[in-house]
């Protein structure tokens, strides 16, 4: 270990009162930074809650929006709620098995050099901006044949995949090797060991990662703009059609000149925020419980 030179340039250890003053200032600034970070979250949640709560009623999820409404007839966003459920649900069904399989390969089968290549690929994929994923799916699937909920799901699945794979790799690495060896020593074939011993042991962590990934993509707008945004007002559950989603609806309503639209955007945003905060907290709770369980055994 190379020693860090504490008496190097810039660090003078002579004037104690001043050093203490500097220290107190810096500690104060660190407290301030933490306070600012929490205050931002507080202000955002409060603004959304305050504006969304008063607009919140059953019409939001039961009534359809009305194009060019000039009356005060109640409108909702039932189409967006249905679309988000369908699109995010299908995205999860696509990304979950793929992500787990990638993680199984990386952790249980891949030789070291291939393993580091695949983890690098996963990290790179996680860093591709959501909007680029959107135009990628647009160029690949939408040009020529039009948008659909399924294509929206595909773009969200690409965003989820590295997330699921990463967390699963982390949990699989925590499964004690003794378990694998014990199973193999009993004559259980490797595939059964992986499927019935290793994966069940890791299921808690995989679940946490999945909940977090769902919470993350449920609020994603960018990939859906190009894949599932040209939509009607009817509530539609068919993923072969382009489906409205909550984030895209909020995005469109936020640019509308009509204050009534803003009100609905806040209300829908409030529902989305509550769902995402709830999912994140659940995942956190699952993670700590899981860690305790793994450590306890």
């Amino acid at each position: 270990m190379s020693t860090q030179d504490l008496t190097g340039p810039g660090l003078r250890l002579d004037h104690l009162p001043r050093r203490k003053r500097v220290n107190r200032t810096m500690e104060g600034l660190a407290w301030l930074a933490a306070a600012i970070a929490i205050a931002i979250l507080g202000v955002v949640v409060y603004s959304v809650g305050q504006r969304g709560w008063s607009e919140l009623n059953l019409n939001l999820i039961t009534k359809q929006p009305i194009n060019f409404s000039l009356t005060n007839a109640p409108q909702g966003l039932s189409n967006a709620f249905a679309g988000t459920i369908v699109i995010v649900g299908i995205a999860m069904l696509m990304a979950l098995p793929a992500g787990i399989l990638v993680a199984v390969y990386v952790n249980e089968f891949a030789p070291a050099p291939i393993r580091s290549v695949i983890t690098l690929v996963i990290d790179v994929l996680a860093g591709v901006p959501a909007i680029v994923i959107g135009i990628f799916v647009f160029v690949l699937l939408v040009v020529g044949s039009g948008q659909s909920g399924l294509k929206g799901s595909f773009s969200l699945a690409i965003l989820m995949l590295p997330f699921v794979a990463r967390t699963t790799i982390e949990v699989l690495a925590l499964v004690p090797n003794a378990l694998r060896e014990a199973s193999l020593a009993l004559g259980v074939p490797r595939w059964r060991t992986t499927l019935s011993i290793v994966l069940p042991r890791a299921i808690g962590g995989i679940l946490t990662g999945t909940v977090l990934a769902v919470a993350r993509v449920a609020g994603e707008t960018a990939p859906l703009l190009f894949t599932s945004s040209v939509v009607g007002v009817q509530t539609d559950w068919n993923p072969a059609h382009a489906l409205q989603t909550i984030p895209v609806a909020i995005f469109e309503l936020s640019e509308s000149p009509d204050p009534k639209d803003h009100a609905r955007a806040w209300a829908a945003g409030f529902v989305l925020l509550i769902f995402i905060l709830f999912a994140s907290l659940t995942a956190r709770w699952l993670a700590t419980r899981n860690a305790r369980k793994l450590a306890g055994r």
């Binding site: 970070a37 931002i40 955002v44 959304v48 909020i250």
Partner: peptide, 19 residues
């Protein structure tokens, strides 16, 4: 505090934009 700071990352960008 850790949980709160990480929750900030979970707020969807479209909501931050609306705000």
């Amino acid at each position: 505090v850790t949980a709160l700071v990480e929750t900030l990352a979970a707020v969807p960008s479209v909501l931050i934009g609306l705000w």
